[in-house]
Write a protein that binds this DNA or RNA. Structure first.
Lengths: 158, 158
DNA sequence: TATTGTTATACTCTATAACTATA
DNA sequence: TATAGTTATAGAGTATAACAATA
């Protein structure tokens, strides 16, 4: 079933907004000579020390892809591999202090960008927008069983 | 200056919404075994026949990157290079009929996804959300001199 | 001389398949 | 046998630098 006529500009608005936000993130990430996937790696490690396999699941990648990803991040001193205490086959991946600093800084600057974007609206409208967006996301999460509070924002279920 | 306390959940909501929308697009694109940049290429060609250099500007890429991009799209029969009538150095890039069909289908399915997402809100709230989003984008465009009506959604100015 | 486009080269990111070390 | 992780290989996507053809 095709989209109805009346929703066309609603569709375009949300679409363009999502592109604007993604571009803001992209800009902050490239400021640190990182890629989106690299910052996503640092992001999921902020509150986890997963095995390579668990990391692959979190990021929605094959484990071989994660091997290379972690290799490159480790070469830059952003993460480290430590032996898993209970399984001699496995490694745990951990953020280093510099890695954590970068993750925090990028997240902060990006949040500031969004705040600045929102500051274009008066307080009341901002509140209304926020409520509607939350409702949209809640409805979607209910319909699809997605966990909105997982900061990984990965396209797969844990 | 860091973000104010009260805007935190506003920031998260918009951020998550943008990720949800990008994932919807990503899913529609991979259904056709294409990448985001390939569908963006087809998208900008829907109403243009640019030179390689102009295409590079539209997509925000180096011309050498566009050479490869167009090569691969051409190999799949989605675009074609035609000689520029006035300059024997230049080529114009044009969508083929199959390329246009795919661009139209992906755009349509994606628009339907957004419509479905929005259908989670009653009509009045949808209208309000749309107005607020438009206002946000208009304010941003005014501040930055961006053309919101350029479907390329490219991170650079024409 | 300057511009248009391609090519050579190098790197990141991704997946599949084969491998090793351990369980 | 099964699982955790790496490696080999292949391909897309990107940029820089060098180049040929044309302006």
């Amino acid at each position: 079933m095709p989209a109805s006529n009346q929703t066309l500009s609603e569709v375009d608005g949300l679409t363009q907004l999502s592109f604007v936000i993604q571009q803001m993130l992209e800009r902050r990430v490239t400021e640190h000579n990182l890629s989106l996937i690299q910052i996503r790696l640092l992001g999921v490690l902020r509150d986890r020390e997963p095995t390579m396999t668990a990391l692959a699941t979190l990021l929605g990648l094959d484990k071989s892809s994660v091997s290379g990803l972690v290799d490159r991040a480790q070469r830059r001193g952003l993460v480290e591999r430590i032996p898993a205490p209970d399984d001699r086959r496995a490694s745990l991946v951990r953020l280093t202090d510099p890695g954590r600093a970068i993750a925090t800084e990028v997240a902060g600057r990006f949040a500031d960008d969004i705040s600045a974007l929102l500051s274009g609206l008066p307080r009341g409208e901002r509140k209304t927008l926020s409520q509607l967006v939350s409702k949209l996301l809640t409805t979607l999460a209910t319909a699809q069983g997605v966990d909105l509070f997982d900061t990984a924002s990965s396209p797969n279920s844990p």
